[in-house]
């Protein structure tokens, strides 16, 4: 209902880490001066691999409405095959942004007047030393590059804190590589 919030909807598969990615961005944005931050997961009875999503709302003021995002400014997709299964960009604002982990070229994507950002996060994350399929730190790098809402350094620091004891260096490296290799397109 309020128009001055930034709403970012994260779509992934159960077990892929979309909620962790959104939480890291929430923490980094809060540390960067956004007073109002709410990361609201929508829960089904998840199985691994089933489509899941979470809503991240960010504002300069406290967030009072914790309902799922209906009109997101940004949609982040951790697995490009989800685009074939569900209406992932439903409600996306005109002139919004879609960020996709995909091995396909950015010119293959069009979302009716939206900007698109693509990186092969799956491949880049393996190059960073992470096991196959770990994409939730890498996609944060693409988010930093495409959205431009928060400094990469702030995100890298939060990634290292969050993944303490769980390959912090490789996770930060994945975000750095994805930041450098995100291709912008669309509109």
């Amino acid at each position: 209902m309020k128009n001055d919030n930034i709403e970012i909807r994260w779509h992934g598969r159960g077990g892929q880490g979309a909620i962790t990615a959104a939480k890291i961005v929430a923490k980094a944005m809060f540390a960067s001066g956004y007073t109002g931050v709410a990361m609201v997961p929508t829960f089904g009875t998840e199985r691994r691999g089933a489509p899941v999503f979470t809503s991240l709302k960010v504002s300069r003021e406290k967030i009072y409405d914790l309902s799922p995002s209906k009109r997101p400014d940004i949609v982040v997709v951790l697995d490009h095959l989800l685009l074939e299964e569900e209406d992932i960009t439903q409600g996306l604002k005109q002139g919004g942004l879609v960020i996709i982990n995909s091995p396909l070229a950015v010119r293959g994507y069009g979302f009716n007047g939206s900007r698109v950002a693509v990186a092969d996060v799956t491949d880049l994350s393996v190059k960073a030393g992470l096991p196959q399929g770990m994409v939730n730190s890498g996609i944060i790098g693409s988010f930093a590059r495409a959205a431009g809402l928060v400094e990469l350094d702030a995100l890298l620091k939060t990634i290292k804190d969050e993944f303490i004891g769980r390959r912090p260096g490789e996770n930060a490296c994945a975000a750095q590589l994805c930041f450098e290799n995100t291709i912008m397109g669309g509109l």
Binding site: K23, A26, T35, V37, A38, M39, P41, F43, L66
Partner: peptide, 10 residues
């Protein structure tokens, strides 16, 4: 439940 129990907020 969920709306507060599982939502991350400051």
């Amino acid at each position: 439940g969920y709306i507060l129990s599982h939502t991350h907020m400051p």
